[in-house]
Design a protein around this nucleic acid. Structure first.
Lengths: 145, 145
DNA sequence: TTGCTTGCAAATGATTTGCACTGCT
DNA sequence: AGCAGTGCAAATCATTTGCAAGCAA
């Protein structure tokens, strides 16, 4: 239910001394409805009432408060999605032909193996891991046609 | 030994009807010497004889020929590294404090598990994976000080 | 009122491109 | 001569920012 989502988002923002305004709510709603990371133009298409500069500014606030996460994959536009506190841990399938990005979740067992491997890295090299991202590049079903 | 590296790079470029010029060789040398992905300013520092626009143009050629790979991680500058044909398969440790990127290799067993998981995804969703990238975010030893 | 938010228009800055020149073949 | 490669300067374009007006406490 999206009421929970908005309550959570409002709470996180409040903890950062930020308000949950109409425009910020609109961004969160659009991102939640998409189910995949969106570019800024895509976000504006889904809520034409938003000015571009305000969208960028509000995304910056949401990112700072850990409500939204920004992804960059080489295309012209960055992509935005809800942060992990508000969604499930997942990774990305990136189509090298059309540039769209889809979410995937990996088996929990595999995620544990990865985390264990990263902890080993920490012990060996002194690098302290906080989180990870896996990008799988390839061709999506639509482009395979 | 770097003679092999240059021979390989020259061969790949030739296969793409491209020459292995002095500047392209300088870029490959700089990237091989770094052992970690470099930004364009970092590349120019290492070989001041290079004009910025030429560096960008040659990197584009090298990327097109699969000699170099371009990485984007949200910082101001993209980073460049030798493509996997010329180096080992590896992943990246990204310091969220200073932005530097270091290479890591994961246990072969784990890589196999990952590939198997991605093949499952292919079977399920119709997405055909070609390769993957794992980014581990955290804090590097220097910044932990 | 006081301060945050908004949207327009202008600025910024990484990357790309036009063009004239140099150098290899 | 002919074509690829070079570098300067100018253009491009996603993103950021200045500023004046709107809105909520």
């Amino acid at each position: 239910m999206s009421a929970d989502l908005h309550r959570a988002a409002a709470g996180v923002l409040a903890a950062h001394d930020q308000q949950y305004t109409r425009n910020r709510r609109a961004l969160v709603t659009a991102l939640a409805g998409a189910g995949a990371p969106l570019t800024l133009p895509e976000l504006l298409e889904r809520d034409a009432s938003l000015a571009q500069s305000s969208a960028y500014r509000n995304l910056a606030v949401l990112i700072d408060a850990d409500v939204v996460r920004r992804l960059v994959h080489g295309g012209d536009h960055a992509r935005y999605e809800l942060a992990e506190g508000l969604t499930e841990h997942h990774h990305h399938l990136i189509c090298e032909t059309c540039g769209t990005v889809a979410d995937v979740t990996l088996p929990a067992r595999l995620e544990s193996s990865l985390d264990r491997a990263f902890d080993d890295v920490a012990r060996t090299s002194g690098f302290a891991p906080s989180h990870h991202a896996i990008d799988v590049y390839g061709t999506c079903a639509d482009c395979l046609g």
